[in-house]
Write a protein that binds this DNA or RNA. Structure first.
Lengths: 183, 183
DNA sequence: GTCTATAATGAGATAGAC
DNA sequence: GTCTATCTCATTATAGAC
C-alpha cells in the first residue's frame, strides 16, 4: 500500500472514530506514518483527503448492503439479513455519523456521498418492499427501516450499550411481520 | 437574565448548532456578551458549563415530550401527536446529536443526561403501547419509534432536506396502524 | 464580578532543502 | 516524494488589575 493509500485509510478510520471537525491532519499523518510534506504532496489539504476517504467508505457500505439485499429469500428475509448483519454498533455508522458534523453538512462536496448513499439504500429497500409487502407504503417504510438503523446507533451511543439498537431492530422487524400477515 | 444564565443559554445554542467539540469557550463568551474572566468566574471551564447546558436542554425536551404523551387520545393518537410535533428537523435533536460527539460519549458526566432522557422516553412510550397495542412487543416498538425519530434527523441532514424525516415518520405510523387493525 | 494581559498547545498550511 | 522548519491563528486556560 502506497503512502497516498495509507493516508486515505488513516483518514477513514479517524473520520469514523472522531468525525471530520475533530480529525486533524497531524493525527492522520501520525497514524499513516507519513510527514506533513508527504500529505500535502498527495492531497490539497484536509477537505480533499476527507472527500476521497468518504467516497471510499460510501462505496464499501453500498457493496456490503448489496450483498444482503441481493441475497436469497423474499423481501422481509433479505431485510432481516441486512439488519442482523454484524456491526460495530457503539462506533456508529461510518457514513451516518458524519451527518451530524457541521463541517460535512456545510460542504456540498463532502455531503454528497452521504446523500447518494442513503438515497440509493432507501430506493433499493423500497423496490424490495413494493414487490413483496403490498400492505405498506414502500417508500415511507424504506425510510423507516434506514432511520431505525441510524437512530439505533444514536440510542446505543447515548446509552453506552448495544441494547437499544437491538431493541429498535427487533421492533421494526416485528412491525414488518405484522404487515406480511406472517406474525 | 444574569451573566451566568446568558452563558448557559449561549452554550445550549452552540451545542445544538455545532456540537461539543466544535464549540469553543471563546464563541460562547462572544454570543453571551461576556468576557473570559466572567465565564471562568461562574464556571470551572467548558465541561462544567456544558454539563449545566445539557441538563437544562434534557429537562426541556422531557417536558415537551410529556405534553404530547400525556395528552388526549389513545396510545397511537398520543404518539402520532408527539411525532408530528413541530421540529427544526435540519438542526437535528439537541440531545441526540450530542451522542455522535466523542467528547460527550467519553465523559460520563456529559453522557448521563442523554442516557437518562432516552431511557425515560422509551419507557414512557412502552407504557402507552402496553396498554393499547397488545399486538406488538412494547419495549422493542418503543425503541423503534425513538430510533425512527433520531434516524430521521440523520437522514434529513444527509439529504439537506426534511423529506426523509417525514417519510420515516409516516412509515412507522403506517406500520403502527396495521398493528391496531385500524388501517 | 468583570476586565485585559499572557501563555502553552495544537490546527492547518507553506517553503524550501534533500 | 519526503523531510524539517516556519508561520498564523484559535483553543483553553491562568494571573492579576480594576
Amino acid at each position: 500500500m502506497g503512502t497516498a493509500d495509507r493516508l486515505v485509510e488513516s483518514t477513514r478510520e479517524l473520520l469514523w472514530e472522531r468525525g471530520y471537525t475533530a480529525t486533524s491532519p497531524r493525527a492522520i499523518q501520525e497514524r499513516a506514518g507519513a510527514g506533513q510534506g508527504s500529505m500535502y504532496h498527495h492531497f490539497r489539504g484536509k477537505p480533499d483527503l476527507a472527500a476521497e476517504a468518504i467516497r471510499r467508505t460510501a462505496a464499501e457500505l453500498r457493496t456490503a448492503a448489496e450483498a444482503s439485499l441481493n441475497g436469497p429469500g423474499d423481501a422481509v428475509e433479505r431485510i432481516t439479513a441486512y439488519l442482523h448483519r454484524s456491526r460495530d454498533v457503539l462506533k456508529g455508522c461510518p457514513i451516518g455519523r458524519l451527518a451530524q458534523d457541521p463541517g460535512i453538512v456545510d460542504d456540498p462536496v463532502l455531503r454528497e456521498p452521504l446523500d447518494t448513499t442513503f438515497t440509493w439504500l432507501r430506493g433499493r429497500l423500497a423496490e424490495l418492499l413494493a414487490e413483496d409487502v403490498p400492505a405498506v407504503d414502500a417508500g415511507a417504510t424504506a425510510a423507516t427501516i434506514v432511520a431505525t438503523l441510524q437512530g439505533g446507533y444514536v440510542l446505543a451511543r447515548a446509552a453506552g450499550s448495544t441494547e437499544p439498537f437491538e431493541q429498535a431492530v427487533a421492533g421494526v422487524l416485528g412491525l414488518l411481520s405484522l404487515a406480511t400477515g406472517k406474525a
